[in-house]
Design a protein around this nucleic acid. Structure first.
Length: 431
RNA sequence: GGAGGUGUCGCAUAGUGGCCUAGUGCGCCCGCCUGCUAAGCGGGUUGAGGGUGAUCCCCUCUCGCGGGUUCAAAUCCCGCCACCUCCGCCA
């Protein structure tokens, strides 16, 4: 949810933001109209309610016939109060429904447009030139088979398309990546977490995943629970309905969790291998901080993502995602895309979003600030939330296997990862 | 899954239909007093929304959450949730 004052004060700014996302600017006016209606309904109800309370006090003191008369009048008033209350909650529901559709206001720096309108911020490392080295790179499916690391056939047999087993060295590789990520984050002051991955509707809704993204979400109707597509959801909801002392900020959490995605509407897309799957494990960073500090925190999160990719010796680029590709909650998003040799292009490995106060408003996460002017007393306002992928398993494994493969079918292990792989310097094909 | 219990302002408690505009104690904040501290004294101390938005004032909502009964609900009724105790089952 965005700040209503922004809409009231500068509706054109909000309309413009909608246009840059390729979304309907009229939504802004709809919200304002419904806000108006809501406020007059509130005023009407409050006045009647005050009358009713005053009369109630009279009734309590009255006796005999006077009381009977008062009761008759007050009965009628009660009807009106009830009607006004109904009108008020209707108006509020209508307003809230419109407001819930309003995405975060994209940062001015985020390029206008959709998925393909990103800006490339930088390139790090050089894609490996296999032609120069004189051999054709194998793809991760083939490499995974030879190394005994990835079993896609049995994944499909047991669970269906877009499922897989990590086996042997593949499983070792995941544990290595998790541990390396956790060590890095712990060193940077993050609190390690293992969150629940089934959550109530509130958590899903509050993080903005029940909007257009709802089609991609697994739901258990019987218990009214959702399988999360990212641990961002339980991490954001962790402090819902809480007031955090500003002294304790920023609060940084790093979580390991499985992630579940329907991948609806991606039929035929990335069908080979484990690039796009229904389930994968991920290590995710999450920060609660003040709005003012959120921008530099966002850079910081990007920095930690880059540090991790650097250690894996991957070639990648950083893009500034276009407004239309931000999702509901983000104000700005950077993706790190690694070069995948057999795809012949950069593919998203990690992503970091600044959701500013959007999620905090929906989840009622606030900070207690020292009052700005008088110096005494406190002020309570929404915090900012940010998230960033440290490592997402399948895609990172793909990038490592394909990038560091050698002519003999083995895979070189990046130095930083070796201690986490029992000191192995290469992964060798089995049999 | 079954049985019972509990849920009130930061904490502890009072409140069983209208003097609740939720009392009291502790803690905390401001002030007074005071060699310093403590004590004492006075004031304040949930959050949200609204009144043509600033610090002051007024109003409404908020006693776990949601409904209902009633002229009137912290209080009565129904549903849900969380926690505690016990039983069953289980990694």
């Amino acid at each position: 949810m965005i700040d209503l004052r922004v809409l009231r004060h500068d509706p054109e700014h909000a309309r413009e933001a909608q246009r840059r996302r390729g979304a309907a600017p009229e939504l802004v006016d709809e919200i304002l109209t419904k806000d108006e209606a809501r406020r007059s309904a509130i005023a009407a109800f409050e006045q009647l309610r005050a009358e009713q309370k005053a009369m109630g006090r009279q009734v309590a003191q009255a006796q005999g016939q006077e009381k009977t008369e008062l009761l008759a009048r007050t009965r009628e008033l009660a009807q009106n109060v009830k009607a006004a209350e109904g009108a008020q909650s209707e108006a509020e529901d209508a307003f809230n429904a419109a407001m819930a559709q309003m995405p975060n206001i994209a940062a001015p720096e985020a390029p206008a447009g959709g998925e393909d309108d990103y800006t490339v911020l930088e390139h790090i490392g050089e894609p490996r030139d296999f032609t120069a080295e004189g051999f054709d790179p194998l793809d991760h499916v083939e490499l995974g088979k030879r190394l005994g690391a990835i079993d896609i056939e049995r994944g499909a047999k047991v669970s269906g398309a877009r499922f897989y087993y990590l086996t042997g060295v593949g499983a070792d590789l995941e544990f290595a990546l998790v541990n390396m990520a956790m060590d890095q984050a712990r060193g940077a002051g993050f609190t390690p977490m293992i969150p629940p991955t089934l959550v109530k509707p509130r958590a899903m809704e509050g993080t903005g995943f029940l909007g257009q993204a709802a089609a991609d979400v697994y739901r258990l109707p019987e218990e009214d629970l959702y399988l999360v597509g990212t641990s961002e959801v339980p991490l954001a909801a962790y402090h819902s309905d809480e007031i955090l002392d500003v002294e304790t900020l920023p609060r940084r959490y790093v979580a390991f969790s499985p992630c579940f995605r329907k991948e609806a509407g991606s039929y035929g897309k990335d069908t080979r291998g484990i690039f796009r799957v229904h389930w994968f494990d991920k290590v995710e960073m999450f920060t609660y901080t003040t709005l003012e500090d959120s921008y530099k925190e966002h850079e910081q999160l990007l920095g930690w993502e880059k540090e991790f990719l650097d250690k894996l010796e991957l070639a990648y680029r950083v893009i500034d995602t276009a407004a239309g590709d931000l999702g509901l909650s983000a104000q700005r998003k950077f993706d790190c895309e690694a070069w995948i040799p057999t795809h012949g292009r950069y593919r998203e490995l990690t992503s970091t979003s600044n959701c500013t106060e959007f999620q905090a408003r929906r989840l009622n996460i606030r900070g207690r600030f020292p009052s700005t002017d008088s110096g005494q007393g406190t002020e309570i306002k929404p915090l900012a939330t940010l998230n960033g992928t440290l490592v997402s398993m399948p895609r990172t494994i793909i990038a490592i296997l394909e990038t560091h493969q050698q002519a003999d079918g083995s895979v070189r292990v990046p130095e930083a990862l070796q201690p986490y792989l029992q000191g192995r310097t290469t992964l060798e094909p089995i049999a």
